[in-house]
Simulated assay, not measured.
Amino acid sequence: MTTPKQHTVIDSPYGPLTLVATDGVLSGLYMTDQRHRPPEETFGEPDDTPFGEAIEELRAYFAGELKEFSVRLRLDGTPFQRSVWEQLRKIPYGETRSYGELADALGNPKASRAVGLANGKNPLGIIVPCHRVVGADGSLTGYGGGLERKQRLLDFERGERGAALF
C-alpha cells in the first residue's frame, strides 16, 4: 500500500520551492536543480491543502520575521540521518556549525564524513537548516541547493542587505 502524498510549488527569493506532504505532514522541501531531489512522480498529486502552515512560516522566514520553524515535520530516513537532522534544527538562526561539531554533538567525533552525507540527504532544506553547516575552517562546503544559494541564505540570516533577493 502506498502512502498518500501531495505537493505544491511556491515562489521564494531563492527560486521555486516544491513542498511535499506525506499523510498530510510536511516531508519534503526541494529547490530546483537540487542534488538528491527525488523524481517528480514521487511527489504525489498537486494539492496545496496540507501546506497552509508551512507556507505561512516560510513567508514569515523570508520576510525576516521568523527565526525558528514550528510546522510539524515527517523526517523519513535512517536513525542516524534523523539524529543528524535533529542536530541541524538546534543550530540557531544566523549561526553555523562544522560537520565535526555536529559529529561531536552526536557523541561520535569521528563521524564528520557520515554527518556530511546525512546532511546532503536532508529532505527539508531551509526548514531543517543544512545551509548552516560549514567546513572546519568556516569555508562553504557542499550544499544540495548550490553554494550560491547557501551563501545567500547565510547572508540573509546574518542580516546582510539584498541577500534575500535571488
Rank of each mutant, 00 (worst) to 15 (best):
L147G: 07
A118K: 02
E53V: 13
N108R: 10
N108H: 08
P13Y: 14
L124A: 10
T78C: 00
I127C: 09
F51V: 15
Y143N: 07
T32C: 14
I127H: 03
P4A: 11
L17W: 12
V9R: 09
T42M: 13
P16Q: 14
G162F: 03
G146R: 01
R74G: 11
F166I: 07
S27M: 09
G125F: 07
L102H: 01
S12V: 10
F62W: 15
Y30R: 13
L117T: 12
L165Y: 07
I55R: 14
A118N: 07
R82Y: 01
G116T: 05
L19F: 15
A118Q: 09
E160F: 09
V25E: 09
I55G: 14
G159P: 04
G64N: 11
W85F: 01
K5D: 04
V84S: 04
F51Y: 15
E86H: 04
T78W: 02
L140V: 10
R132T: 00
A63S: 14
S112K: 14
I126R: 02
A103W: 02
P13F: 11
H7E: 06
E40Y: 08
N108D: 14
E95H: 05
A118E: 05
Q81F: 03
A163S: 06
Q6W: 06
Y14K: 13
D155I: 06
M31K: 10
P109Q: 03
S12K: 14
L19Y: 15
T22H: 07
A111W: 08
Y143P: 04
L73P: 03
G64F: 06
T49G: 11
L26T: 10
D11A: 15
E57C: 10
G135N: 04
N122H: 07
